[in-house]
Structures are given as structure tokens and as C-alpha cells.
Design a protein around this nucleic acid. Structure first.
Length: 155
DNA sequence: GCCAACGTTGGC
DNA sequence: GCCAACGTTGGC
């Protein structure tokens, strides 16, 4: 089993939105970066544990824990011409370009673990999240890093 | 295949 | 709102 971090902008889709979604589950759609796509399509497996991170908010922070409940499959939003933010007219139906997984909320952290706190924690210094210029919205996380974040979050 | 221009991400 | 860093596009 692997561990992951998924970024989302809470103004678009927050952890609370995930908690209130049917079955506390959603398709993690809208990823339009090939490296992140490859993780979604090839590497994320049912049962993998996921940290949910809020970006472009104050403070940016890991706010909750989720689990992969369905492995990579085509992201339906790429075919939806009404969804201007996600529609990709270049993506062939017979070999879709973009993939999603389904994730289910496990629990909200009692305390968010802020980016500042992550930067200040030696054991988390190697996380992709704090590497210069790193922008990937789907990132692998080591088991130790995953547990450390949960501990900092008061779980 | 190079690389300049442009677009996006996301912290600050 | 700024801008550094990075990815993508497209002319050549």
C-alpha cells in the first residue's frame, strides 16, 4: 500500500465538501498534468491512504485523511463540453487522456497541519510539498511522513 | 529538436 | 496582485 497527498483549492472543492458528498466519496477529477495523471492512472491502488491538502487558502494545510476506493479510470469531465474548466476537445474517446480515482473521506484532522508547520518539521523535509518549485497536485508520501502528519494533526 | 512565448500553479 | 518556477505550445 502506498500513501499520497492530493491538493485541492477549498474554494473549488474542500474536505468538508468531500465529507458531505454522497458516500463521502468523489471522483478526483480535473487533474490536467501528465505526471499527476500517471500517478492516478497507474500507481494509486484501492486502499491506498491519502492526505488532503488545501492550497491557495490561508493557511495552506493538510486538513484530512481519505482512502482510494476506486482505481484509475477516465475522468468524465474531459468529455463534458459544458464544463469549460475541464473539457478537453483533444482527448480521444477511445483512448482518454485524463484519469481520476475515487476517494472516500476517512476523517478530518482535529487540527490542520499547515505548510509552515510542515516546513518546520525535520522529519517532513523531504516531502515533495516543500521542495522548491514543486507544484504536482498528486504526490507520493512515505509511510513515515504520512504518520507524522497525522500525529501533528492530533489524530 | 530547439527555444521563446505563453499559461498555470500557488505561496507570499 | 506579484512573481518564481515549471509545463506546454508552436514557429522555425
Amino acid at each position: 500500500m502506498r500513501h499520497w497527498l492530493l491538493k485541492t483549492e477549498p474554494a473549488v472543492f474542500s474536505f468538508d465538501d468531500l465529507l458531505s458528498a454522497p458516500g463521502r466519496t468523489t471522483g478526483w477529477n480535473g487533474v490536467r498534468n501528465y505526471q499527476a495523471r500517471n500517478f492516478l492512472r497507474d500507481q494509486m491502488k484501492k486502499g491506498d491512504k491519502v492526505l488532503i491538502y488545501h492550497s491557495s487558502t490561508e493557511p495552506p494545510a493538510v486538513v484530512g485523511e481519505a482512502v482510494v476506493v476506486r482505481e484509475g479510470h477516465p475522468d468524465p469531465t474531459q468529455f463534458d463540453a459544458r464544463d469549460a474548466d475541464h473539457y478537453d476537445p483533444e482527448s480521444p474517446r477511445e483512448s482518454p487522456r485524463w484519469f481520476q480515482v475515487e476517494v472516500k473521506a476517512v476523517r478530518k484532522l482535529p487540527r490542520p497541519v499547515s505548510l509552515e508547520e510542515i516546513r518546520a518539521t525535520r522529519a517532513l523535509a523531504k516531502m515533495a510539498l516543500v521542495q522548491r518549485g514543486q507544484r504536482l497536485s498528486v504526490q507520493p508520501v512515505s509511510p513515515a511522513e504520512f504518520e507524522k502528519i497525522l500525529a501533528l494533526g492530533g489524530r
